[in-house]
Amino acid sequence: TEEYEYTDEQQAREAAREWREKGYTVTIEEHNGRWRVKTG
């Protein structure tokens, strides 16, 4: 599992979409105004 943090929701969603296209399972969670994208 890798985790990436973004301050911008749009960036987080874009990144998540790219990971999904590569076949990863992706979770996005908002935490204190930051967006965490977890792949695994």
Results as ranks from 00 to 15, higher is better:
37 V>L: 07
31 H>E: 11
37 V>S: 00
26 V>K: 00
30 E>G: 06
36 R>F: 15
29 E>V: 11
3 E>P: 08
27 T>M: 08
30 E>M: 12
33 G>Y: 02
3 E>M: 14
12 A>C: 05
28 I>A: 02
29 E>Y: 13
31 H>N: 10
28 I>N: 00
3 E>C: 08
36 R>D: 02
2 E>W: 13
28 I>L: 09
38 K>Y: 07
31 H>A: 10
5 E>D: 10
36 R>E: 04
26 V>W: 00
20 R>L: 15
29 E>D: 08
27 T>N: 06
36 R>N: 06
29 E>S: 10
10 Q>H: 12
23 G>K: 02
22 K>A: 08
9 E>I: 11
7 T>A: 14
18 E>R: 13
24 Y>W: 08
40 G>S: 15
27 T>S: 10
31 H>W: 10
29 E>K: 06
18 E>G: 09
32 N>Q: 05
34 R>F: 10
28 I>W: 02
6 Y>E: 01
38 K>I: 15
25 T>M: 12
38 K>P: 01
16 A>W: 04
18 E>H: 14
16 A>Y: 07
15 A>F: 05
14 E>W: 02
11 Q>L: 12
19 W>Q: 05
2 E>M: 14
38 K>R: 13
13 R>C: 08
40 G>N: 15
40 G>L: 14
29 E>H: 08
10 Q>N: 11
6 Y>S: 02
12 A>G: 02
4 Y>R: 08
35 W>E: 00
38 K>S: 10
19 W>I: 06
35 W>Q: 01
31 H>I: 14
24 Y>N: 03
34 R>I: 12
11 Q>D: 11
22 K>L: 11
28 I>G: 00
15 A>S: 07
33 G>P: 01
16 A>P: 00
21 E>L: 06
25 T>I: 13
15 A>G: 04
38 K>Q: 08
19 W>Y: 09
25 T>Q: 13
11 Q>Y: 05
23 G>R: 01
13 R>W: 06
39 T>H: 09
11 Q>T: 13
8 D>G: 05
8 D>C: 06
36 R>H: 12
26 V>G: 01
35 W>G: 00
39 T>K: 12
34 R>L: 09
25 T>Y: 14
20 R>D: 06
37 V>G: 00
21 E>D: 12
12 A>R: 00
37 V>A: 01
1 T>D: 11
